Simulated assay, not measured.
Amino acid sequence: DALEAGFTKYTPSAGIQELRQAIAEKLANDNGLSYRAAQVIVSNGAKHSCYNAILATCQPGDEVIIPAPYWVSYPDMVRLAGAEPVFVPTSERNLWKMRAEDFENAMTPRTKMLIMNSPGNPTGSVYTREELQAIVDVAAEEDIYILSDEIYERLVYDDAKHVSIASLSKEAYDLTITVNGFSKSYAMTGWRLGYLAAPEAVARAVDSIQSHTTSNPSSFSQYGAVAALRGDQQPLADMREEFDMRRNYMFDRISKISNVTAVKPQGAFYVLVNISQLGLTSQNFADRLLSKANVAVVPGAAFGDDRTIRLSYATSLDVIKKGLDRFQDFCRTL
């Protein structure tokens, strides 16, 4: 409809008012967050929103704490802003989640931001309200920004609940930049639309940065996003149910393979598999698996953890079954 109506021109750099208002209403209704439309900036994907947030808040010499394993783009976004990424390793024992004391131990006088991703890629970890509150308490002591990447918020399973960090308290709200988008929940990957909601000063800075770089996100895509937010939400529940079925199948299969381990993911659509007992680096394992079994996985080295590889269940169950058959046979040869 937007294309037929000729909505193919420039829009305000931060997005059309109708979409920014719809996002503000979504954040209020779903996340318990009170933002005015002026505090919402629509960008070319959630990744773009993350980068804009880092550019708006971090300077050369600043440090940004990133729990590992992490989404591959975070460190380079930080470096592009002239800041320095500081990694905090996590472990299976702690369900791949950073503890508040780990965060505090990694802080220095140069720490400017913490990047949180819950539900997480590649781990599938979902932080509890109590875990997030403990982290906020540490950040608030030194006024450290929290970039909260919540792109997988609709994909949580079992008893896990998604909690937006900014909803925890006024302190959390004042320090948090909330990032989300349409690629995962609405499967609108090619539409390239994400957004952030932030304190007014940060939102203004992001708007200025975007106006001098990419300008507005695609005009007709923005109208599609309005339709997604205000339309029937049942397809999201149906999609989550399908992912849950695939998740259970994949984890059950992996649990029966000797010499590899995994934590059952509570969110997103990935399983992080620990292959350290097999004696190969993650890149070596991935290369050999591809050449010998025609199965593609992402080596954990890309996520800052060379003990692991990432599998995805964002594909059909038939493909998952075939891939896991080959994966299991390959592991038996090692």
Rank of each mutant, 00 (worst) to 15 (best):
R110Y: 10
M98T: 13
T123G: 05
N274M: 06
F269V: 09
A197F: 00
R253I: 10
T213E: 12
A106V: 00
T111K: 04
F243M: 07
S221H: 14
V78Y: 06
A205L: 07
E241W: 00
D143F: 06
T176G: 03
G323K: 01
E171K: 15
K256S: 11
Y223K: 01
A140E: 12
K112R: 15
D1M: 12
A187L: 07
S167N: 08
D207C: 13
E142A: 14
I144T: 15
A22D: 02
S91I: 01
T315M: 10
Q233R: 13
Q39I: 09
Y35F: 15
S43Y: 01
W191C: 03
L80N: 01
V179I: 15
Y10S: 10
F220A: 15
A198D: 13
T176N: 04
L311R: 04
L80F: 01
R326D: 14
G6D: 01
K184D: 13
A293C: 07
L55I: 04
D158S: 04
G120P: 11
N31H: 14
A24Y: 05
D158A: 08
F103S: 01
N105C: 10
V138M: 03
G15Y: 01
K264C: 00
D329E: 15
P89Q: 14
Y152F: 10
N117D: 07
V86C: 12
S43V: 03
I66H: 07
A286Y: 02
K170I: 05
P89A: 14
V271P: 07
N44F: 09
L229P: 13
S211A: 15
E25M: 05
N259M: 05
G15L: 04
M107G: 02
A139H: 01
S91F: 03
D305G: 09
S34E: 08
A187C: 04
I66Y: 08
V179G: 04
A83G: 09
V138N: 02
L95H: 15
Y10I: 05
R99Q: 15
T176E: 06
T213W: 14
P12F: 02
R110W: 03
N121E: 11
K184E: 15
D137M: 05
K161D: 06
E18Q: 10
N294Y: 08
I146D: 10
A262R: 07
S291P: 03
I135G: 13
A286V: 05
S118M: 06
I16L: 08
D306A: 12
I16N: 05
T261P: 00
S169V: 02
L19D: 06
A197M: 00
